[in-house]
Simulated scan of single mutants.
Amino acid sequence: MIKIYAPASIGNVGVGFDILGAALIPISGDLLGDFVTVKLSKKFNLINKGLFSNKLPQNIEKNIVWKCWVKFCNVIKKNIPVSILLEKNMPIGSGLGSSACSVVATLVAMNELCNKPLNSKELLFLMGEIEGEISGSIHYDNVAPSYLGGLQLILEDSETISQTIPNFKNWFWIIAWPGIKVPTSKAREILPKKYKKEICIKNSRYLAGFIHASYSQQPYLAARLMQDFIAEPYRIKLLPDFLKAKENIKKIGAISCGISGSGPTIFSISDNIHTAQKISSWLTKNYLQNETGFVHICFLDSKGARKIG
């Protein structure tokens, strides 16, 4: 029996649309993500439990875990009957890589159970392929950090899909999910098909500057450059409270703030725990829309997917 945990993640990280992703772990030490337990069985069986299991499709063949199992068996050209327990702790359509958590945990668990027939590159490629089928286009900015940990730069080079880039150890990442859903497909549809040359150049400049600041360890430069010119101007229509929240968070002392993935979760960054706690309190009182919403102060999770127990 194999049990794997895969952490939640922030896609885009503001400045890196589809090419930057960050894995998260609450500073409390609690795990924020999905668990998948796999064991050999006489036939395929799937059990769903966890905080958000009631939001999963009733039809087993529409469940991401089933799709992962089918794809994995097809790739290794062998049918492996298993019993799978999915602990769905991440809200669907939250902008925290919920589908990526399930995809990563399932494929890592299957690979471990079968004595690792796929290497990490092959596994990551398969994760991206399945994630693409769910959201409508292949993108690795959630699966890569959830699998590999840390802050990931998606290269999609013929030899290298993703690489870890340095992050800032004294940064606190405050995330707030309001308790509502924004489907990734809807958030992608709202984006324009074409962008002006000036916007493309500006975005490239800020992204290159952020990568440079990360490697040269200039935290305030990196924070100033974490601006989203590609998605945020259009996605704020889906998040009516975002601009107000961003303005107030900045007043409290956040050094950066943005939409996590396709939203509605937002993230902010502070280099001071007291400021982070003030931001967390403000978001809890003003950004959450129901009792299922949550706020966490996090570090980046350097471990990524791992075996539990």
Rank of each mutant, 00 (worst) to 15 (best):
M1S: 14
K3R: 13
I4Y: 01
G11P: 05
G16W: 12
F17R: 08
D18Q: 11
I27P: 05
D34G: 05
I47V: 15
I47C: 07
N48S: 06
N54Q: 13
L56V: 05
I60H: 00
I60W: 01
I64C: 04
I64Y: 03
V65R: 00
V65S: 09
C68V: 10
F72I: 14
N74P: 02
I76L: 05
N79Y: 11
I80L: 08
I80Y: 11
P81D: 10
V82W: 03
I84T: 08
L85N: 04
V103K: 09
A105K: 02
L107D: 12
V108P: 01
A109I: 04
L113V: 07
C114Y: 03
K116A: 03
K116Q: 08
S120T: 11
E122T: 04
E129K: 13
E131K: 00
E133G: 15
E133V: 02
I134V: 15
A144V: 08
L148W: 00
G149F: 07
G150D: 09
G150E: 09
G150H: 09
L151R: 05
S158T: 15
T160Y: 02
T160V: 13
I161N: 11
T164C: 12
P166T: 14
P166G: 08
N170S: 12
W173L: 14
I174F: 05
I175T: 13
W177A: 04
I180R: 15
V182Q: 10
P183L: 09
S185F: 06
I190K: 07
L191F: 03
K196Q: 12
N203D: 10
N203F: 06
A208F: 13
G209E: 10
F210N: 06
I211C: 09
Y220M: 11
L221A: 13
L225P: 05
Q227H: 02
D228W: 06
F229A: 00
Y234E: 03
I236M: 01
F242E: 03
F242N: 07
L243Q: 15
K244S: 15
E247M: 13
N248Y: 15
I249R: 08
I252M: 09
I255Y: 12
S256W: 06
I266S: 02
Q277W: 01
S280A: 14
S281P: 03
T284N: 15
K285Y: 03
K285M: 07
L288E: 11
H296V: 01
S302F: 01
K303R: 09
K303L: 10
A305M: 00
R306C: 01
